[in-house]
Amino acid sequence: MKTARRWGRLVSVLVTSLSVLTMSGMAVGVLLGSFADKAALACDQVPGTPQPFEGKRHIAYSGEEHEPYRSMPPTSGPHSPRVVPPGIYRKPITEELQVHVLEHGHVMLQYAPDVPADVVKEIERLGRQYPRDVVVAPYPKLGRGIALSGWQRSQRLDTLDEAAILAFVKAVPGRYDHQWRNGATDCLPPHPPAEGEN
Rank of each mutant, 00 (worst) to 15 (best):
V101W: 01
T75C: 14
G150V: 08
T94M: 03
Q152T: 00
E96M: 05
H66S: 15
E64P: 12
P86G: 07
S76K: 09
M108P: 11
P131G: 00
Y89F: 14
E124M: 06
H58M: 14
K121T: 13
E96T: 14
E95T: 10
L102Q: 09
R70M: 09
V135N: 00
L102F: 06
V119P: 00
Q129S: 14
V136F: 02
S154I: 07
H100K: 10
I93N: 04
E122L: 06
L126H: 07
P85C: 02
H100I: 04
L126S: 10
P140G: 09
S76G: 11
S154V: 08
R153T: 13
G77L: 03
R125Q: 11
L97W: 01
V135G: 00
I59F: 03
T94D: 09
Q98K: 07
V119F: 01
G145N: 05
W151T: 09
S76Y: 05
L157P: 13
G105I: 12
H58S: 08
V83F: 01
L160I: 12
P86Y: 02
R57H: 08
E95F: 01
E64A: 15
E124R: 06
K141Q: 12
T94Q: 08
V99H: 05
P81E: 08
K141D: 11
R153D: 08
S154Q: 12
K56T: 07
T159F: 01
K91G: 03
D118Q: 10
E64Q: 15
S71K: 07
S80E: 04
I123V: 15
E95S: 13
R70F: 04
G145M: 05
L160C: 10
L160H: 05
P85Y: 03
P140I: 09
E64W: 04
S154Y: 00
V136A: 06
P113T: 00
G77H: 04
M108S: 13
L97M: 08
E124P: 05
P78R: 04
I88C: 05
H58G: 06
G63R: 05
T75L: 05
L109R: 06
Q152V: 00
L126K: 07
H66A: 15
T94A: 11
P140E: 12
P86K: 01
I123M: 05
L148G: 10
D118Y: 05
R125W: 03
H104D: 02
Y130F: 15
